[in-house]
């Protein structure tokens, strides 16, 4: 089971190509509002995370996620379930 920090690091790594303005990625960073990742790219990022962790992250889960930290928590909960 990956640690909270490992999940955060993985998200940061996968976010890089979408973070075109190279803004610092914090747990409090809004994925769309601060990092300016558009909704299509967010779903592409999610598919990469699904494949990496071999989990299913339904779209309704994603609609509740606004920040990087919330995404870390969502993945952790899905891995534990």
């Amino acid at each position: 089971m990956p640690t909270d920090q490992q999940i955060f690091d993985k998200i940061c790594e996968l976010l890089k190509p979408y973070n075109v303005k190279n803004k610092p990625i914090l747990r409090t960073s809004g994925i769309m509002s601060d990092l300016e990742v558009d909704s299509t790219a967010v779903f592409d990022l999610i598919m990469e995370l699904e494949d990496h962790y071999d989990i299913s992250i339904p779209m309704e889960v994603i609609s509740d996620v606004k920040t990087v930290g919330e995404l870390v928590n969502a993945i952790q909960e899905l891995l534990e379930s």
């Binding site: 779903f43 999610i46 598919m47 299913s56 339904p58 779209m59 309704e60």
Partner: peptide, 13 residues
């Protein structure tokens, strides 16, 4: 349509 259905939705490539 998925939103109105309100059920689990998964996206594929």
């Amino acid at each position: 349509g998925t939103r109105l259905a309100g059920t689990t939705t998964v996206r594929f490539r």
